[in-house]
């Protein structure tokens, strides 16, 4: 009974975030169809990868005929922050069975983490806290699948005058702007942006990865500026 209650709490706390997630899922669905993926590929990518920004980057790179190595590395790099989520949650989940950890790892996305880590930190002695993450993660999963389906279904019916490809940079702007909270993060963005202009025009195949590397280095070298 208590397990059900904490699961329900995870669901209810996750629900308000779906106001932001749902349109994002629809946008992914539309873009996936625009990029040439089949209905099934577009739909199932949302359960196979289950990572919003990385899926949009995937379809954008695919429509630009980027090398597959670039697509895989970019998806991995975008989702690399989830490694930190796992690290910060391991002390609460390490006593669970392997099947539980596999399931929760699969559901460990930005929004589920944001909601459940607060619960974990405030109730660290509770042995059934993982039901909260199950609730928040499943809510996000269901919402993501439904919104993707919605986007995939309307993908071919949108008016021609809308330059849908432009939704991708706009979406990424919406994602990264709130993440620029310090001088070092701002310098990361500026360096990665300038590097991209240079490397892309030099026709370097892995220009995204190389620009990203320069951006990360710029952030790390200037992290001291944040502490002043």
């Amino acid at each position: 009974m208590k397990k059900w209650k904490i699961f329900k709490q995870g669901v209810l706390e996750e629900l308000p975030l779906q106001l932001g997630v749902f349109p994002f899922g629809v946008i992914y669905g539309v873009m996936a169809i625009e990029s040439g993926l089949t209905f099934l590929q577009a739909l199932l990518m949302s359960s196979i990868i289950f990572g919003g920004a990385s899926q949009i980057a995937f379809v954008q790179l695919l429509s630009n005929s980027s090398p597959f190595g670039v697509i895989v590395t970019t998806v991995g790099a975008i989702n690399s922050r989830h490694l930190l989520y796992g690290i910060s949650m391991v002390e609460y989940l390490n006593k669970l069975s392997l099947s539980w950890r596999v399931m929760l790892a699969y559901l460990l996305t930005d929004e589920a983490y944001a909601v459940s880590i607060r619960k974990f930190i405030n109730n660290s002695d509770n042995s059934i806290l993982h039901y909260h993450l199950l609730g928040s993660g499943l809510t996000l999963f269901v919402s993501w699948q439904i919104s993707t389906l919605f986007g995939v279904l309307i993908g071919n019916d949108l008016p021609e005058f809308l330059d849908l490809q432009f939704i991708i940079p706009l979406t990424f702007i919406a994602i990264i702007v709130p993440m620029i909270k310090s001088k070092s993060t701002l310098l990361t963005v500026i360096t990665a942006g300038i590097s991209a202009l240079i490397f892309k025009n030099l026709d370097i195949n892995f220009w995204i990865i190389l620009s990203g590397l320069f951006g990360v280095l710029a952030g790390m070298f200037t992290i001291r500026l944040d502490k002043k």
């Binding site: 975008i78 940079p169 070092s184 892309k200 990865i209 990360v216 952030g219 992290i223």
Partner: peptide, 27 residues
């Protein structure tokens, strides 16, 4: 779970550093 601090710090820059080139390219 005890990664070096510098490695942990680098994670926060990665999404910014990878998404910015895509934005710049699309513009």
């Amino acid at each position: 779970s005890d990664l070096p601090l510098s490695v942990k710090q680098s994670f926060k820059y990665i999404p910014l550093a990878v998404l910015t080139p895509i934005i710049v390219s699309d513009l």
